[in-house]
Design a protein around this nucleic acid. Structure first.
Lengths: 230, 230
DNA sequence: TCTCTTGCGAGAGCGGTGCTCTCATATCAG
DNA sequence: CTGATATGAGAGCACCGCTCTCGCAAGAGA
C-alpha cells in the first residue's frame, strides 16, 4: 500500500471536517441540514462543498452510514461485555446500549429511525450496518437455544407466518424455530418503539423514572422470549 | 345560534380547501409541504395563504390535529364494532384499524409518529386526540379486568416503576393493577413500532405476508397481556 | 527545472422556499 | 351611502440546493 499523497490526505481531512461540522449542525438545528450553513462554519463558500459531496443527500447518506456504524458498535460492544451465559444480562445490556446511544445522539437517531426523508431513498449500503442491532438481539436468542437453555414456546405461528419467519431464519443463518424468532422480532420492534416514543416525546410527563421503565419494558419482552436470568 | 355571514362561510370554505390541497401535496411530495405550491394549486399568490394561516407551521398543526382525529375515529370505531365481551377480537380490530389507517395515509402517519419537525413543538391541543388510540387499548384491558376475565400477571413491577405506572393509572382513571397497565403500554409501544417499521421500510423484503405477520405480532402482545379469546 | 494537467475555492446566478409589507379592491355594517 | 374591514396581488428580503465559470496553486511528466 502506497502512502497517500499530501493532496489525498488533505482531501480526506476536509471530508472528515465537513462531516463533523454537519453532525454538529444536525444536533443543534435538527434534520434540515443546510449545506450553506456548514460551508459558512468552515469559512468556505457553499459551492466548495460540492468538491467533496456531490449533493446534500450524499452528505446525509455519509452521516447515516456512520451513525448506523456507531450504533452497531455500541450495541455489539455492550453485548460482548457481558458473560456469554448470562442471556438476560446480555439482552438488557444490548437494549440499554441502543437507548443510551439514541439519547446521546437524538438527531442522528431520528435520521435512522424517524420518518424517511421525502425524496431520499436509503442506498443499498445501509442495510448491512442497519441490521447489526437486530442481529445482536437474535444472536442472544440463538446462543440460548443452541445451548439448550431456551425452550421454544409451545405453538408455532400459523401459516403463512411460520414459513415467512422460517425463511428469514435461514436468510439470517440462525437456526431458530419460527416461534422463537418471531418473539425475538417482537423484542426488536419493542426496543425501537420504546426509544422512539421516548425520544419523540410520546411519553413526556408520565413515567418520570425513564431508565427503570425502559428496563422493565424490555424485561417484559425477555419474559416473552423466555430468556432465563443468569 | 346566528347564521354565519356569507363572508364567514366563504372563509371557512377557503380554510377547508387549503387544508385539502395541503393534504394532497403531503401525500404526493412527502413531509416538506410548500405553502407556495399549495397557493399555486389554488390559483392564488402565496401571500394570500397568510390570510388564513399565520404560518406554515400553523397549517401543519391543523393537518396534524385532523389526522389525530381521523386515526382516533378509525380506531374507536373498530373497537366499537366488536362484541364487548370478545376482548381479543377487540384488540385485534383496534390494532388493525390503526395499521390500516396508517397504510392509507402514510404521509400523515409520518407527521404524527415520525421524527418531530425540527423547530416545531406540538401544541397542547394535540395531547388529547393523540391519546385516543392508547386509551382504546387500555379500555379493552380495563373491561377485561373489571369483568374478572383478565387475571393480573403474577409480580408487580419493581419500584419505582410500580408507583409511576400506578399514578398513570390514576391519571387515566382506569382501575388497573400496574403490572397489567405496564403490559398494556407494551402493547401500545409494540403496535406503533410495528406500523413504523413497516411504513418506514425497516422490514422491506423479509416477511411477504405483512397482514398475517402483523396479526401474529399483535397477538403475541395480547398473549402477554393475557387477553382471552372470545 | 519547466510545462501542463488537475484539483480546488470564490463568485455570480437560477429557481425555489417562508414570510413581510404595501396597495387596491370587494364586501360588509351602520 | 359611507366608512370600516377583509381579502388578494405584487414586490421584496433572506435563505436554500445546485450549476457554471474563472483564476490559482499543487502535483506530474519531460
Amino acid at each position: 500500500m502506497v502512502a497517500p499523497s499530501l493532496r489525498a490526505r488533505v482531501r480526506a481531512g476536509m471530508i472528515d471536517e465537513i462531516k463533523a461540522v454537519a453532525r454538529r449542525h444536525l444536533a443543534t438545528d435538527g434534520a434540515n441540514l443546510s449545506l450553506r450553513a456548514v460551508a459558512r462554519d468552515m469559512g468556505m463558500v457553499s459551492s466548495a462543498i460540492y468538491r467533496y459531496f456531490p449533493s446534500r443527500d450524499d452528505l446525509l447518506t455519509a452521516l447515516i452510514l456512520e451513525a448506523y456504524d456507531a450504533l452497531g458498535d455500541a450495541v455489539e460492544a455492550a453485548d460482548a461485555g457481558v458473560d456469554r451465559a448470562d442471556l438476560r444480562g446480555r439482552w438488557h445490556a444490548t437494549c440499554r446500549a441502543a437507548r443510551t446511544w439514541a439519547l446521546a445522539h437524538p438527531a442522528e437517531y431520528a435520521l435512522l429511525y424517524g420518518s424517511p426523508v421525502p425524496g431520499y431513498a436509503a442506498p443499498e449500503d445501509t442495510v448491512a450496518p442497519a441490521s447489526r442491532p437486530p442481529l445482536t438481539l437474535v444472536g442472544i436468542i440463538r446462543d440460548g437455544f443452541a445451548g439448550g437453555r431456551l425452550d421454544p414456546p409451545g405453538a408455532e405461528p400459523p401459516e403463512p407466518v411460520r414459513s415467512d419467519v422460517a425463511e428469514l431464519s435461514a436468510l439470517l443463518a440462525v437456526d431458530l424455530p419460527p416461534s422463537l424468532l418471531a418473539r425475538g422480532m417482537a423484542g426488536w420492534t419493542q426496543l425501537f418503539g420504546l426509544i422512539s416514543f421516548e425520544l419523540f416525546g410520546r411519553t413526556n410527563g408520565m413515567l418520570p423514572h425513564r431508565d427503570e421503565y425502559f428496563d422493565h419494558q424490555t424485561g417484559l419482552m425477555a419474559d416473552l422470549i423466555g430468556l432465563p436470568a443468569a
